[in-house]
Amino acid sequence: MGTYILTTDRLKLREMTKNDVQNLMEIFSDPVAMKYYPSTKDEKETMSWIEWTINNYKNYGVGLWIVEHKETGQFLGQCGIVPQEVDGKIEMEIGYLFVRREWGKGYATEAAAACKKYGFEKLNLKKIISLPDVNNTPSAKVAERIGMKVEKTIHKWGKEVLVYSITA
């Protein structure tokens, strides 16, 4: 098991490990959950995602964390702070991706709010962003619920992406 990073009323966030492939496949193999990503991912691509995340932990001290239900330990999704390039500089993004069976319960907002607090209080970040697809209204709503405002639209990952941001 990965190290627990933070907890909220209902959630525990921990570091991702190579044992999370099956958990993540529940999201990555779902075309609906992956609608705003280039495509679904197979096991090999999921392993690459985990390696990318573990490298982010090493290089930046942050990355996507596994979100579990605090009481049951059930896998709910991933949420964390991820370095992203925006207009030539590295910004810290709150990213979130949850299994479809858990949508609509407020878990993404709860996890994202905890990551925002962690970013400002523990990491002393000056600014945090979120990068939802321009058409991904539910994802944009999470950014808005944690106090972020739209700054601009950029072209990234071959599509139009909103840049939401909040400063400390």
Rank of each mutant, 00 (worst) to 15 (best):
Met1Thr: 12
Ile5Val: 15
Arg10Ala: 02
Leu13Ser: 09
Glu15Pro: 04
Met16Ile: 15
Asn19Asp: 15
Asn19Trp: 08
Val21Pro: 12
Val21Ala: 09
Gln22Trp: 13
Leu24Ala: 01
Ile27Glu: 02
Phe28Asp: 14
Phe28Ser: 10
Ala33Val: 14
Met34Asn: 09
Tyr36Gln: 07
Ser39Asp: 15
Ser39Cys: 15
Glu43Leu: 06
Lys44Ser: 15
Ile50Arg: 10
Thr53Val: 01
Asn55Pro: 08
Tyr57Asn: 00
Gly61Lys: 10
Val62Asp: 05
Glu71Trp: 02
Gln74Lys: 08
Leu76Gln: 15
Cys79Asp: 01
Ile81Ser: 00
Ile81Glu: 00
Val82Trp: 00
Ile90Ser: 01
Met92Tyr: 00
Glu93Phe: 02
Glu93Met: 03
Glu93Ile: 02
Tyr96Lys: 02
Leu97Glu: 03
Leu97Val: 02
Val99Lys: 15
Arg100Lys: 06
Arg101Lys: 15
Trp103Thr: 06
Gly104His: 03
Glu110Ile: 05
Cys115Val: 03
Gly119Glu: 06
Phe120Trp: 05
Phe120Asn: 00
Phe120Ser: 05
Glu121Trp: 05
Lys126Cys: 02
Ile128Ala: 01
Ser130Asn: 02
Val134Ile: 13
Val134Lys: 01
Thr137Met: 08
Lys141Asn: 11
Lys141Val: 11
Lys149Ile: 11
Lys156Tyr: 08
Ser165Gly: 12
